[in-house]
Structures are given as C-alpha cells and as structure tokens.
Design a protein around this nucleic acid. Sequence first.
DNA 1: CCAATAGGTTAACGAGCGCTAACCGCCCTG
DNA 2: CAGGGCGGTTAGCGCTCGTTAACCTATTGG
Lengths: 196, 196
Amino acid sequence: MATRTDAPTRREQILREAARLFAERGFHGVGVDEIGAAVGISGPGLYRHFAGKDAMLAELLVGISGQLLTGGKRCVAEADGSPERVLDALIEGHIDFALDDRSLITLHDRELDRLRDTDRKLVRQLQRQYVEIWVDVVRKVYPDLAENAARVSVHAVFGLLNSTPHLSRRDALPSRTAMAELLHSLARGAFAATAT
Amino acid sequence: MATRTDAPTRREQILREAARLFAERGFHGVGVDEIGAAVGISGPGLYRHFAGKDAMLAELLVGISGQLLTGGKRCVAEADGSPERVLDALIEGHIDFALDDRSLITLHDRELDRLRDTDRKLVRQLQRQYVEIWVDVVRKVYPDLAENAARVSVHAVFGLLNSTPHLSRRDALPSRTAMAELLHSLARGAFAATAT
DNA sequence: CCAATAGGTTAACGAGCGCTAACCGCCCTG
DNA sequence: CAGGGCGGTTAGCGCTCGTTAACCTATTGG
C-alpha cells in the first residue's frame, strides 16, 4: 500500500504543470500540447486522465477553493479562543497558501470566468463561504465595523496577501519567514485601521 | 477646433470596449468580431484604426502605465510638503484610478505577458518607475523600513487597492466616497504596521 | 499463456481565430 | 462637379487549437 508521501501520481503531475502554465500565460494561452510536453507525454495523451482542458481547470479551481475553505474552517475550530487568535490563524493560513502555491492563487482570481456554469457556481459558493468566515471573525474583533465594510476590507486584504506573484523576479526578496511576517503585519495593520 | 470634452473619437470608443472585454474574458478569450460589435461596426473594420489586436492591448497597457506614472509624478511635484501628504496624494490618486477604471486596472496586472517584447519592456519600465516613486515616499515616512521590505509593502498595497474589481456584483457596496475613504484607511494602516 | 486493460502514440478533422483582399459609398475639397 | 481618401462592408485564407479515431505496447490477473 502506498504511504502518504509517495511519488506524485500522473494526474497530480498534470495538474501541477497545468496550474503553472495557466498562471503564466492564461487558460486560453496554453495549448494541450504544451501541458502534455510539460509532463513528458504529448498532446492527446492527456485525455486518458482528464475529460478535457476545461476539466483540468475546473478540478484546479474547485480544489483550491475547497482547500482554502477547509483550512479556514479548521482555523475557527481549532483555535477557538479569542477572535484575535482565529484571525491570526486565518491570516497565517492564507499566507502559507499564497507563498507555497503562487500559481494556484493566481488562477483562483483570474480564470474563474472560464468555467462551465455549474462549476463556476460551485467555486463561487465555496469562495463566498470562505469570505464569510473571515467577515465573521473580523467583525468579532472589530465590532463597530459594518458588514459590507468588513466584506470590502476582507477582499482588500486578500488582494494584499495575494500580491506576491506580482513581484518581479529581479527584486531581492526577503526570506520566506520574513516575507510571511511582513505580510501578516500589513494585513493586521489594514484591519486595525478600520477601527476608527 | 474640438473642445476638450468632446464626443469620444472612434479610437477611444474601441479602446474602452476592448478594455472592458479583455478584462472580462481575457485577451485570448475575446475575438475581434466581438470588439467590433461592441462599438457597432463589425470585425475587420477595426483595422482602419489599429494595426491589430495586439496593438490595442499595447496601447491600453502603455497608456495605463503612463497615466499612473504621470499622476504619481504630479503628486510628488505638487504636494511637495511633508512626505505624509505626498503618500496620501499617491494613495488617493491610485484609488481614483482603481475605482474609475476597474477594467484597466484589471488588465494592468493580468495581461502584461501577452505583449510583444518591446512593448512589455516599456510597460515594465513605466511600472517600475511608478513603484519607485512610492518606495521613496514610503521610506521617507517610515525611515526604518528596509528597501526591499518597502517594495514588497508597496506591491501589497497595490494589491489591496486594486481589489475592487474582485467584489461580487451582488454585494451591497458602500458609496464611492465611503469606499475611497475605507480603502485609504486600509492602505495607511498597512503601511503604519510596518513601523514596528 | 492469453487476453484485457492502462497509458501511450500519430493522424486528422472541424471549428474558430486574426487578418487580408476586394469592393463600396459618403463627404470634403480644389 | 470630379475625385480621393476615410471608414466601412463581406468573402475568404491560413493557421492553430481542442478533440477524436485508430493503433500500439506493456503489465497483469485468471
């Protein structure tokens, strides 16, 4: 039986490379031949693993949204102390995701409209649940904040945390831990500023 | 001779609609026939005004970057009082742009890689100059901030300010002025948090 | 040992794309 | 009043892309 840290299955390989390519050149900008070449097979061989190009994108986006939501729920469940702690956990989890899976984060807010109606609705529902978790926690920490203002702030902080893929490759970046700390401070500072 | 606030020329019409469509469905996701239809002419008629689809995107992106940079320079030149004031002016200008030209903002960090090498380099250079203006001002306001940390923070705040297009159309949004104030507070709060 | 299945291959099709060619009417100027 | 250019039109070309078809090989279970 396979242990937990096995060689990645072919499906996973394909998904990884497809995510990278989609993030780099856009969904419509990448051909199936390129995706195949990236995993060492060629073009139509992909159709032994996926129903089509759309299916790859759908699986990626649903997976991302689901992972984020699951992580968010876990933050609320585990650190069920002060809302402050939950918020910190949420921020940290989102940062980990943004730093470790840049291309997925990029896809997540860029290629949603390329999905079939049913898939897009599912992803949007997952995203909305994730946002609501944040909104609830933020409003517990800052009770004076109106609900729509809280939602705008949460979206804004997502934009802030998801900014890492936009950094030019030439810039000397801080270490991962320094980066995570900096982003965390920025996010907390942004929220703190909403309390008049 | 035409006065300043004239009916938009056909070129401008086309650029507006192209920007909107590119932002909605991606550069590769929009056909020239759609762009033509959006301005009431059909398909190849566009080639009387532009050399090609690429040229439209290039003009849009160069225009955006140039406008941002010009606005940034003006902020530094005009409000040459305290760096605090300059920073506020920069934030305000960027917010105006993000709120008034959502689709341009979307294009600006999404479709850069679809440009020809020469155009892309130009746009990147303009972008870098704009970023450097911000970095300089931020480091004057927060002298303890290291340069690369300042740059990361500036990119992050751009992500924060550019988050407005991601808001779902169903959400009840605050008024424009309230929105601008909120974003301004969030941005200042984020920067403030970098000063330990 | 044989046959089925998993996982590839190449060839090719059909649709859609950007773009060009060829043509046309309107307005404006000499 | 002639004529030229500006700003459109439709037809169609050539290419690329996603997808399917047909075929091949290796592993594996009965």
